[in-house]
Amino acid sequence: MAFLELKEVEKAFFSKETLTEAIKDISFSLEKGEFISIIGPSGCGKSTLLSLISGLILPTSGTIELDGIEIKRPTPETGYMLQQDYLFPWLSIEENITLGLKTMGKLTGETKTSALHLLEKMGLGDKAKHFPGELSGGMRQRVALVRMLSTDPKLLLLDEPFSALDYQTKLKLEDLVFSTIKEHKKTAILVTHDIGEAIAMSDRVILLNDRPGKIQRVFHIPSELKDLLPFEARNHATFNKWFQEVWKELESLER
């Protein structure tokens, strides 16, 4: 049985005047330890899909099962990382990374120590007593990564987590997130509009077309690329070929 399974998922949004079909007929499954990316033209419902998987919103029809259990509300099994870090400015870094544990009532001396240990590994051990306002964008996104991992979720949902960063920070953080996820043997779904990032980081790339979002094509990234760190993958000989292929498919959609 697949770790995560989506069956004919459909989501429509209602307002007084309009009915918007955000996504339609989405079915795919994910094995434990897999890393997939979802790309597509803007407004194709990529983020909606993540919100559905996280249980923050419910599908209009179809089912989403995680480990055989249907997702109906946010579960501790999934962690969410947003476009911006959204660290709480009124809490210290230490309080920010233990927020999830505290909310779930799992904050003990032990879990706190392991969260702080993770912070240390991100090279931010000395920042625990600082406030988010004192940190740079890249540091803050690393704290957000620790906050997500602190509750030890099995499935990670990454909603364009690098898009607000400058290019250099983004490349470094891609490597860091990639290696952290592999090290902890997590399953992850990345939503992005950066083709290169999707190819460099994931095992599979799912391309959605827009309004309503449907699966257009799935690219299986070969092992010579997917086993490399994102930065190395970007420099690999076959990277460009894959880039061109995804690019062409995406271009054909936008016409």
Binding site: S54, L56, Y80, L82, Q84, M104
Partner: peptide, 14 residues
């Protein structure tokens, strides 16, 4: 209040 802060805490099942 920015809805994304709520999203963060809701993703922890608040």
């Amino acid at each position: 209040v920015d809805g994304n802060y709520l999203k963060v805490i809701n993703s922890f099942g608040a």
